[in-house]
């Protein structure tokens, strides 16, 4: 077995780690307008990424949007996840597959769908105007709200599926016991279901947060040119400015911030609930 696992493991490590190491190396190079970059070992790119108010603002926007999306996704996913987890009918497996269905279509295509939904002559505006609620079309597209709305829509299935599998593992009798001992649904949720599903909430929230921190297509297509998040900014450095060293440094800054925030978040939330 070990003979088979080892080469496969090394291959995976190489495929995953190789590009990362290469990017890490690039991030210490110096940009050159003619030859792309010059070999060097400098922290200048990082220093600039951290100190520049322009990129500080982009990073802050990214974190705020990711936090908002994570919170909103958790709130929205809990109900459907619970419903799915506790469902007993033969529809359960079909609905689970249906939940996964949006994942079969890439984020770009789904973002394009939201584009059609939210534009001034899109479905939402057409419906609101048709219903006589508004006279002039609302500017829905190219707003932070549009980005958050669409991102939540895109990451929701991940959250629902993660939560559902954890809720499924909580015996129904535990909830019945709470009700039997006099807990109304609300209290039962906060005292029993919520703490017990916390691992699922944390796993789902971490996954969603990482996805949101790295969102590319949605902010680009729905945020408009003035709305800046990190992943498009990284791409811009690579594809438009040809500044690979700085792009790599931005990418690693995003990675580091994401890792710090996710580990910080999980430990804080976990501790708070253990204490309660």
């Amino acid at each position: 077995m070990a003979k088979l696992v080892l080469p496969a493991g090394l291959l995976v490590l190489l495929l995953l780690g190789g590009p990362m190491l290469l990017m890490l190396r690039y991030s210490f190079n110096v940009f050159d307008p003619l030859f792309l970059m010059k070999q060097a070992f400098t922290f200048e790119n990082y220093a600039r990424a951290v100190a520049d108010p322009y990129y500080q603002k982009i990073l802050t926007t990214t974190i705020l949007v990711a936090l908002a999306c994570t919170a909103l996704t958790t709130l929205l996913a809990y109900g459907p996840a619970y419903w799915l987890a506790r469902m007993e009918s033969r529809w359960k497996s079909k609905l689970t597959i249906l939940t996964m269905f949006p994942l079969l279509v890439g984020g770009v295509v789904r973002s394009a769908g939201y584009l059609a939904l939210l534009s001034t002559d899109g479905l939402v505006n057409a419906a609101l105007r048709g219903a006589g609620i508004i006279a002039e079309p609302l500017q829905l597209l190219y707003t932070p709200g549009a980005v958050i709305f669409a991102t939540v829509g895109i990451v929701l299935p991940y959250m629902i599926l993660t939560l559902a599998s954890v809720i499924e593992s909580i015996p129904r009798q535990v909830e019945e016991a709470a009700a039997n001992l006099g807990a109304r649904p609300g209290r039962s949720f906060f005292r029993v279901l919520m703490p017990l599903s916390l691992p699922g909430v944390l796993a789902g929230a971490t996954l969603v947060f990482i996805l949101c921190m790295n969102a590319y297509a949605t902010p680009l297509l729905l945020g408009g040119p003035q709305f800046q998040m990190m992943a498009p900014a990284v791409y811009e450095q690579f594809a438009r400015a040809s500044n690979w060293p700085f792009g790599a440094a931005l990418a690693f800054l995003l990675l580091i911030v994401t890792v710090i925030l996710t580990s910080l978040g999980s430990s804080v939330i976990a501790r708070r609930y253990r204490a309660g």
Binding site: V174, E176, A177, N180, A183, V192, L196, Y273
Partner: peptide
């Protein structure tokens, strides 16, 4: 259930693990 004055001991005990 929470409005009834009954106490049920479940077959699986259903203790709160946390």
């Amino acid at each position: 259930p929470y409005e009834r004055d009954t106490a049920l001991v479940f077959q699986s005990y259903a203790l709160f693990p946390h």
